[in-house]
Structures are given as structure tokens and as C-alpha cells.
Write a protein that binds this DNA or RNA. Structure first.
Lengths: 237, 237
DNA sequence: GTCTATAGTCGGATAGAC
DNA sequence: GTCTATCCGACTATAGAC
């Protein structure tokens, strides 16, 4: 017997099978948590609901995540991971890079508009993002430990990036409160389509947004962003 | 004994005392509900929490409102009443009136900006409105029966009013989806300061907004509204 | 109209068989 | 690792004294 082999290696197939099954259970619980925590909140979601939706059982929650709260944190963690993947796809560079590279105002506006358009696309097109939105909205008005996970390096980075671009676009200090507030207002326009969805649907008199509606939303947001960044001083018509 | 007198009139003082006390209990429960339902949701708020916060008792909820859900509906009803009072104070005329009176574009922008400023003031200055916001945000992402109360004649009226003003400002049809979406985007900017408050506070690195921050918010929103309404076509810097 | 005591239900977590 | 059966605590709603 080679000394390099572990003393009691499990048969690979059986071990893989077990690990695979365990991982499947974890995934199923997290997927159920994404749906249910968003709809009903932490307390409103019962272990039994999670067990049924995930086609597992109540004991699995404690076994894999320690508690229902542990599962919630894992759910938020999975959102954070997916956010990171989406952020990579935007090709969003480091805020510091933008601050360093002296971007022209026009270029900054273009980058900003593209970024907003990308976020708007996610917000109105992606069912996945809409599911997160409910959890994030809850964390905004009643932050738990999980807010830190969502904010640090993610929302923080978007906010910093937008502030840098606004700085370049209108010649303001990216670190100034004024600039940060501008970034917040502009991103608020986008988020409104996730957070106030029900109002929008009622105003439009529809049950769901059509592709045309979605295109209009993106076009309007782009126009608004460009208008706000190219015209920083109030002026009458 | 006059035949006009009821057979067994209660002594006025005692009757007033009872009615007063009953009304006080109802008020106290509704006030507790405003705070607690916003923070913890319907299910997350327990009868015991409501009884303790209102300095009444669990039985009073069932007695006065039929059930915890009944109290929730009463809480939303009280929000609706207060919204109406605030709407009156904005001096907001009927949307139809604006649609009828052919307002000049410049005048429409001014009225719109004042309206947004008024709403922004409520959103950032009024503790009361911030408490509503949490309940309304919940209703947006998970509407209950109560959403109807909030929407009909209230949010609906604001949305309609904004759409009419946008119509006058940029010469579009107030009933068109494009116009409604513009209204939604612009109001979203304002609402973002209520719904994404935690992000804003973190970005600014403060625990609460200073008076200067609030002034900045209102100034930025006014500038953005004016920019968006005076410049409907995208243009490079 | 108020409030204490309690009935009946359902919650999260666990023990122990498989 | 999974899952059934079960514990115990907390919940809502109610009954009945005041």
C-alpha cells in the first residue's frame, strides 16, 4: 500500500454521489429561499414552506445552514456572488481608474449612460434580478447583518463608479456629497422600476410589461441620464 | 319626562369618557401598527408587540379591529387619509384640469418641479412619511388588499398629474405609455431617497442626513427634473 | 371597553431511525 | 445525508371577570 494514499479512501463513486446529493440539497434550499424570503420576509417564511418548496425537509435547513437565519445569509451570499458576475459583465472598471484617467465629459456621459442602460436592462428584463430586488428592498428599509454583504464592494462599487463618472461629466468632486446625491438620484430612477413595479403596472393598465414597454423604459432612462448630466444648472425652457 | 329623551340616556360625562377612551385605544393601536408593520411586516409583527407598544392588550386588537389583519387595513387607511391631507396641501389641482387648461411648457415645468420639490421635502424631512414609506414599499413588492386603498385616487392621482404636466412640458400625450414611464422615472428619483436610504447613508458615510444634505437633495432633484423636461432628445455634451 | 387567563394552532429545532 | 416524529415555545384569538 502506497503511503501517499489516504488510509481509508471512500469509493469515488459513492463519495461523489453523497457530495453531489448534499450540494443539490443546499442549492434547492437556497433557490427556495430566494423566492420565499423575498416574498414573505425572514419571519414570514416558515421552515415548512422552505422544505416543501425545495422538496426537502425541515431538518435539512438546520443540518446544512445551522438555522433558518443561516439559510437566509446563504441566500444573500448567493445574490452577492451573482451580482459580482453581473458586475464583471458590465465591464465596469475600477472607480479609481476612472478617477485617474481624465475622461472627457462626453465620454463620461456615454459610459454612464451605458452603465445605467445595462442596469436598467437587468432590472426590467431579468426575472432573477427582480427576485433579488425584493430581498434588497427589505434590507434597505430594515437592514440585517446581510446588508453588509450586499453593500460592501458591490452597491458601494456601483455608487463609487457613478460618482466618478458624474465628476468627469460635470466637473465636480466625486467625493462630494452633492455628487454622491446626484448618483443616488440617477440610480433611483432605475431602481424605481423594480421597487415601484406595482404602481407602474397599474398606471399602464397592464399585468406585465411588454417588450415595447421595456424598450421605452430603457430609452427614457438613457435620455434622462443624458439630460441630467449635460445640463447641471437649472434653466427655464 | 319628555318623550324626546331616549329611555335610558347615559350620563353625558360617562358616555364621552367611554367613547374617548375607546377612540384613544384605537388611535394607540394604529400608531403602534404604523411603526411595527413598517418594520416587521404583517406576519413579523405579533399581537403582543402591538399590545406592548400601544400600552393596551392583545384582546383590544380583536375587539376594535376584528383581527391583526383588520388593524393593518386600518393602519393603511390612516396613511391614505394623511396622504389626502398632504395632497391637498400641495395645492395639486385635478389632473383633468391641467389637461384642459393649455399650460405653457415652461409653466408646466415649473409646476412639476414644485410638486416634486414638495414630495421630496416630505420624503427627506418628514419622519411621518418615512414611516409610511416602509409600509408602501412592502405593498409595492407584495401587494395585499390594502394596495388598492393606497393606489386609487392617491398614487393614481399623483401619477396622472405628473403625466399631464409632462404632456404639457414636452408636448406628448399624457395617456401614452412613454409619458407614464417618464413620470414613473422622475418620481422614482424622489422615492429612491426613501427606499434606498440605507445605501445613501453609507455612501455619504453618515448615520443621518444633515440639513445641508437635505437641501442638496432638493436642489439636485429640481435640477434633474428641469433638465429631463427641457431636453427630451438625447444630445452629446 | 378593558384585561387576564387560556384554548388551540403553528412555529423552529432536534433526536434517532434509516 | 436524509427524514419522520416530536418537543417546546410563541403565536392569535377568545371567554369571561371586572
Amino acid at each position: 500500500m502506497s503511503s501517499l494514499s489516504p488510509p481509508h479512501p471512500l469509493p469515488p463513486l459513492e463519495r461523489d454521489g453523497r457530495e453531489r446529493r448534499s450540494e443539490d440539497t443546499r442549492r434547492a434550499l437556497i433557490a427556495a429561499g430566494l423566492d420565499l424570503f423575498g416574498d414573505y420576509g425572514i419571519k414570514g417564511t416558515t421552515s415548512r414552506m422552505l422544505a416543501t418548496a425545495s422538496r426537502t425537509n425541515v431538518a435539512a435547513i438546520t443540518y446544512h445552514f445551522g438555522s433558518k437565519e443561516g439559510l437566509y445569509l446563504a441566500v444573500v451570499g448567493s445574490i452577492a456572488e451573482r451580482m459580482d458576475q453581473h458586475l464583471l459583465k458590465t465591464g465596469m472598471p475600477d472607480p479609481a481608474a476612472v478617477a485617474g484617467a481624465s475622461l472627457s465629459a462626453a465620454a463620461a456621459v456615454t459610459v454612464f449612460a451605458n452603465l445605467i442602460d445595462h442596469l436598467a436592462g437587468l432590472m426590467v428584463d431579468s426575472e432573477e434580478v427582480r427576485i433579488w430586488a425584493r430581498i434588497i428592498v427589505r434590507e434597505q428599509s430594515q437592514p440585517t447583518l446581510a446588508f453588509e454583504t450586499l453593500y460592501r464592494g458591490r452597491m458601494e462599487r456601483i455608487q463609487g463608479m457613478l460618482a466618478s463618472l458624474i465628476g468627469a461629466a460635470i466637473g465636480s468632486d466625486p467625493a462630494a456629497a452633492d455628487t454622491k446625491i446626484r448618483a443616488h438620484a440617477l440610480i433611483g430612477q432605475v431602481l424605481g422600476f423594480a421597487t415601484s413595479r406595482e404602481s407602474l403596472l397599474r398606471a399602464l393598465g397592464v399585468k406585465r410589461l411588454s417588450p415595447t414597454h421595456r424598450e421605452t423604459i430603457r430609452r427614457v432612462l438613457r435620455q434622462h441620464v443624458e439630460a441630467c448630466l449635460c445640463r447641471t444648472r437649472p434653466a427655464s425652457a
